[in-house]
């Protein structure tokens, strides 16, 4: 074991020394001028257009009280539902930090609150805090994300500013349902993750 550990340390030193020897003279890290990327556009409309482009569906609601009726309408056959949103009473399966993710394999629907949305690419940012079990948004058959219309940002630069203070565990941008075009470039929705994505904008 000692031998392996020593070898490990040696590679680390050897790599770092090789880098020091071979790297060019230090070049500056550029300051990013965000002014170059600013645009006056309708954030909600742009987000919805881009979400459609990536295969997702957007529904605009007036109030959080409307979400359950809308979800029932869109997914009438869903019975095994995990809701991570306190405003939704549709959950039939409750989860907590100790839930074994493999047991969620046959979940029909997960309902998760998105922290923010990105207009330029139709993506929603969600973190472990929002869905408790990391596998949930991927293993569920269908996915509903709920986002406030006030939390839609123009582009990724603003988004990274907005999430810079978070507790970093696991987070993901989700842009549309899982998809693949690996067979002759034919787009097929529903590869390994959720087969459909609905975003409720409230």
């Amino acid at each position: 074991m000692n031998g392996i550990k020593k070898e490990k340390r040696m590679s680390r030193e050897a790599i770092l020394n090789a880098v020091r020897k071979n790297k060019p003279e230090s070049l500056p890290l550029p300051e990013i001028d965000l002014g170059l990327f600013e645009e006056e556009i309708n954030l909600v409309e742009t987000f919805i257009d881009n979400l459609k482009f990536v295969g997702g569906r957007a529904v605009q609601l007036n109030n959080m009280t409307e979400i359950d009726a809308e979800i029932k309408k869109l997914y009438p056959n869903a019975s095994k539902i995990v809701s991570c949103v306190k405003e939704s009473a549709l959950g039939t399966i409750s989860i907590n930090k100790e839930t074994e993710p493999h047991g969620l394999e046959d979940i029909d629907l997960a309902i998760i609150k998105g922290e923010l949305a990105v207009a330029e690419n139709g993506a929603i940012w969600v973190t472990e805090n929002d869905f408790t079990i990391r596998a949930l948004p991927f293993i569920t058959n269908d996915l509903v994300l709920i986002v406030s219309r006030n939390d839609i940002y123009l582009h990724m630069h603003h988004v990274y500013e907005a999430i810079s203070k978070r507790d970093r565990t696991f987070g993901v941008f989700i842009s549309g349902p899982s998809k693949t075009a690996d067979i002759e470039q034919c787009l097929v929705v529903g590869a390994h993750g959720a087969i459909s994505l609905t975003v409720l904008i409230v």
């Binding site: 881009n50 990536v54 330029e120 899982s178």
Partner: peptide
Amino acid sequence: QPITTYSSHFNKPE
């Protein structure tokens, strides 16, 4: 695509 479907940010193990 404007971004890949999933851009997963791993920081800490569960």
